[in-house]
Design a protein around this nucleic acid. Structure first.
Lengths: 231, 231
DNA sequence: TCAAAAGTGTTCACCGTACACCCATGG
DNA sequence: CCATGGGTGTACGGTGAACACTTTTGA
């Protein structure tokens, strides 16, 4: 026997994804935007989003939306907040749950990018976005800054093997401030989740710099433990 | 000219409030629960909740729901997370946004409590709640523990004038651990948001202990500044 | 041989924590 | 006068921040 809540208003529920990637050539943080090919606001830049379906959770929806655009699964995502201003979407009452995702920019499928007229933007050169998406991006950046200072999530943005230089440039890009090399290396090592390989990357210097890799098991343990505290 | 998103599923959107209060007699943290008087799960204990209306934001809805049960406005509330398991509400697909609220337990309207068959429960003696409300409460407690260690929100749970003893007991109740008196006082004073009054409260000792009050302006400034960073 | 990036340690200030004694008062 | 809770300061270890020189090697 089931009961229904009569006379209650229903709403469209959407998710929107702030997708971050780290461009290793330019050493800047980028964000993946799409050009909307439907109304309203057709032709304008927007976050990738989608509507919640009845048979999925909101986390599922966010994962699905991200995968649709990037082809990636098993991506680090975090729910930010609900955006629910009454007129945020001029077409119809829609509340949206914002998520941000950290991906290795080299991994995503190029054909999908084309299909959705998507494009990577330098954070400092982003166009204005539709609805309240600019606000969402602001939130995401703040949260990412905070999160990275507390948990080792930055490595989600890097390829499997990376140099300390890359890690440092990544943190600098996210925090938008210069960091001291020695203190930084010390801090990263104190996490105890990296192993140094015997290979060197000689692309950025004649001397070459050591490549590192995340120790997956230690990383997982650390994330789980800290998640407990932070919620 | 408006457009509609045809063929998208709609959902009921609800808010649920974890309402915390600090019982000064028993020096324990309490939570306000209601006995549902409608189906499904009629007669079971539950968080106070309500459905989002088309003309309000989700924050508005949470504020409204809280006010309905307590008569209070201008209350500290924080959004926790969206709960959206497909079958969380057996009656109908409903997603719920959980909020927690901190109120001065002496302030709320007794008649409303009666009207909604509500009751304050000691955290350690809580009954099982309907749906995923137990989960929500867990989240709320974790977040509250974190938040109080970072921002001076504890005073939201106290009356206008309070003693250091009360503050300490409150923190101990939230963190569920004993704190060192001297270190605690030092920490509270280092926030620089309290002023000591000339009055003493003699109820809990013969010597009497000084009463303190929050300096509202400093408090606001501190909250705003820290909010910026934490998001 | 030199330019450019890599790699590496020490010092200091501050903060959180551990810890114990005297004070005031009502009964 | 004594039992009860109130009020207060110091010493230590750990953590984050400032800071400069040597190494490697391709050009």
């Amino acid at each position: 026997m089931t009961y229904k809540y009569k006379h209650e208003d229903k709403a469209l529920v959407a998710v929107d994804c702030i997708i971050f990637g780290f461009d290793q050539e330019e050493e800047v943080l980028k964000i993946l935007l799409i050009k909307r090919d439907f109304k309203p606001s057709k032709g304008k830049w927007s976050l990738m989003g989608g509507f919640l379906k009845t048979n999925e959770t909101i986390d599922d929806a966010a994962t699905r939306v991200l995968c649709t655009l990037t082809g990636l699964q098993e991506v680090y995502m975090e729910q930010l907040s609900v955006f629910s201003e009454v007129d945020r979407d001029p077409a119809e009452r829609t509340i949206s749950v914002a998520y941000y995702a950290l991906i290795n920019i080299g991994d995503h499928k190029k054909d999908l990018i084309k299909k959705y007229s998507a494009q990577w933007f330098d954070l400092s050169e982003m166009p204005h976005l539709i609805f309240d998406h600019d606000l969402m991006v602001d939130h995401a950046i703040k949260r990412l800054k905070y999160r990275i200072s507390v948990q080792p999530i930055g490595f989600e943005l890097l390829p499997e093997k990376f140099t300390m230089r890359q890690v440092k440039k990544l943190y600098e890009a996210i925090l938008s401030e210069e960091l001291d090399k020695r203190n930084f290396v010390k801090k990263i090592h104190s996490m105890e989740i990296l192993e140094r390989l015997d290979e060197k990357d000689k692309r950025s210097s004649k001397k070459g710099s050591y490549l590192f890799r995340v120790k997956k098991d230690k990383y997982r343990r650390k994330m789980d433990k800290e998640h407990e505290f932070n919620a």
